[in-house]
Simulated scan of single mutants.
Amino acid sequence: MDTYKSPMNRVEPPLIATEREALAGWLDYHRAELLSKLDGLTDEQADRRVVPSLNTLHGLVRHLTKVEYVWFMLIIEGSDEPAPFGWPERVDGDFLLDDGESVEADAARFVAACERSREIFARVDLDDVRTHRRIGELDVRWIMIHMLEEYAQHNGHADILRELIDGTTQS
Rank of each mutant, 00 (worst) to 15 (best):
D80K: 10
G136Y: 00
V51S: 11
G136V: 01
H58W: 04
A22S: 14
A105Q: 10
M144Y: 01
K5L: 10
P52F: 11
H154R: 12
K66I: 15
S117C: 08
D159M: 07
D125F: 11
K66V: 13
D127N: 08
A24L: 11
L27A: 12
L96P: 00
V67Y: 04
I160G: 08
P14T: 13
R90C: 08
P84D: 09
L126D: 05
V111Q: 12
T18R: 04
N55R: 08
E163D: 06
D39W: 07
E77S: 12
L74T: 14
A108W: 11
S171E: 15
E68Q: 08
E115V: 14
L96F: 10
Q170M: 14
E81R: 13
I120V: 03
T168A: 14
E149S: 05
D94K: 01
P7F: 14
H154S: 10
E19K: 12
A83D: 00
D127I: 14
A46R: 02
R123L: 12
E89W: 14
F110W: 01
L164G: 11
E19L: 15
D94E: 07
Y69K: 04
I143Q: 03
V111R: 14
I165R: 04
P7A: 10
G156A: 02
I143F: 04
C114W: 03
A158K: 03
L164V: 06
A24D: 10
P7S: 08
R49E: 09
E137Y: 07
D139K: 03
E89H: 13
L57P: 00
L161T: 04
P14Q: 13
N155K: 00
A112T: 08
G59Q: 03
E19R: 12
Y29N: 01
G93Y: 01
I120D: 02
L54R: 13
R141L: 10
G78C: 03
I165S: 07
N55E: 09
T3L: 07
I160W: 11
V129P: 00
P13K: 05
D128P: 02
D106F: 12
T18M: 12
S79A: 03
W87M: 10
